[in-house]
Design a protein around this nucleic acid. Structure first.
Lengths: 256, 256
DNA sequence: ACCTGAACACCGTTCAAGT
DNA sequence: ACCTGAACACCGTTCAAGT
């Protein structure tokens, strides 16, 4: 059921005509160019003129794909979310306890935001009213559908935790509460890590894994076993990075 | 020392000339008008032309205050932060345990974001590269200074917790870690509550206090005593709302 | 010294003409 | 049917002229 939702949303090559496929390819191409402009010159410097100039298409064609600049941002956010789905799937198959799987998922998300900071940022920016107010309703709907899909993947982790007895929901606490708390913590932590770097309480802890630290506080508070005092989740984190992003991590390490 | 930092930043009437005071008043006036435009027509509709037209000043004068549109957003974010400082002070004096004081602070922050959603949103938007890339360096510096001030207020809560024995820092955990985790959770939770309202796991829990729920997960995980299973923090929350915002809450309740 | 608003430039968006 | 880019409009920003 989930699998079907994924294939409907992500890759449905068989049911698309050649023209539609070409359209989709061109859209990916444009999104790639948009990313590279943002990477090189910053968010404020991305505009439709530059995108047209940097691509081999005219402004009119660009507007055939994105009905406004904000719509373009939303499209980038959708791409970011789409790329995250496979990470959720891999994390569910990650070798280890339910809490280890969940941590693998967060490690994947965090690494994604380090490897594709621009795409990750788009997910933030696209949640901003300046964007939602002007992007196409269909695009926003797709973004919401994808987000709901991610939430249902989140549910799977909770189910695993419950069936293995690693977590028991206290009265008044629903599966949604747990998913939401994880989402809020991940969103808040990476927003601040990416954008509040000048703040003392962020910059002072460069050597510690503050993302894992925050996550351990949260999961310990939910009493998701084993607790962080009884298990070395940093090892899980490292292993997850290797498993989910082996090649990419090696690349980063070679650069520095 | 903190008191001095606050008075330096917030209200220094005595050392300002009459002209500077008038300038500051006009800036407040402009910010108020900017807020009302955003409230009425949305973020995308706020522009310098409209601000000039809605005020009694010309575009040139507006640019005397804000050297770009983004700078205006940053100024709104500074105003938002300034308004939060007194809440931090009141929460520190709140009657109750160290954890209750902390919860009072979060209740204040959350209520603030309900009472002044636009200002609260500016704090989010101003952390976005589109804004930081174009706003005035001096403005950003002031924003950072204010943020550091808020962090040092955060530290005070931790100090209270430690001196009363309500919380003990595990090895490797610093006061900064605790402040950051609180900040990340509060930021993430209110961003999502305000902007992901269509998402199932947010909308489905309208009757529960998801902000307090997330906070209790976190503080329980830090083992900040007493734990949420031993104490009714919802009562603390309600009491804090009355204490910190008595009149405003009454106003909201009368409206609905 | 500061305020003004016309003028300019940039860029988002559209659409008549072309293929 | 789709692509093009000139044309338009909106709005951010500046600055010569006014007080």
């Amino acid at each position: 059921m989930l699998e079907q939702a994924v294939s409907n949303l992500i890759s449905d090559d068989a049911t698309l005509s050649r023209k539609q496929l070409a359209m989709r390819d061109r859209e990916s191409e444009l999104l790639l160019i948009a990313c590279s402009i943002v990477e090189r010159e910053g968010f404020a410097q991305l505009n439709m003129d530059k995108l047209a100039a940097a691509s081999s298409y005219s402004k009119g064609t660009i507007y055939n794909h994105f009905n406004s600049k904000e719509d373009l941002f939303a499209a980038l956010a959708i791409q970011a979310l789409s790329k995250k789905i496979p990470l959720f799937k891999s994390a569910l198959d990650f070798e280890g306890s339910s809490r280890e799987k969940l941590i693998a998922m967060h490690a994947g998300m965090h690494l994604f935001s380090k490897l594709s900071p621009i795409l990750a940022m788009c997910a933030l920016v696209s949640r901003t009213p300046a964007v939602t107010e002007k992007s196409a309703p269909e695009r926003l709907e797709k973004l919401n559908t994808l987000e709901d899909l991610v939430v249902s993947f989140g549910d799977k982790f909770i189910e695993l935790g419950q069936s293995s007895g690693d977590i028991t929901l206290a009265p008044g606490i629903t599966s949604d509460s747990i998913v939401f708390a994880n989402w809020a913590m991940a969103f808040g932590t990476s927003s601040l890590v990416n954008n509040a770097t000048q703040s003392s309480c962020v910059s002072r802890q460069h050597d510690t894994n503050i993302v894992l630290q925050n996550l351990n506080f949260l999961l310990d508070g939910m009493r998701w076993m084993p607790l962080s005092c009884d298990f070395d989740y940093q090892k899980t984190w490292d292993r997850a990075e290797k498993d989910l992003f082996g090649e990419e991590v090696a690349l980063i390490e070679n650069q520095s």
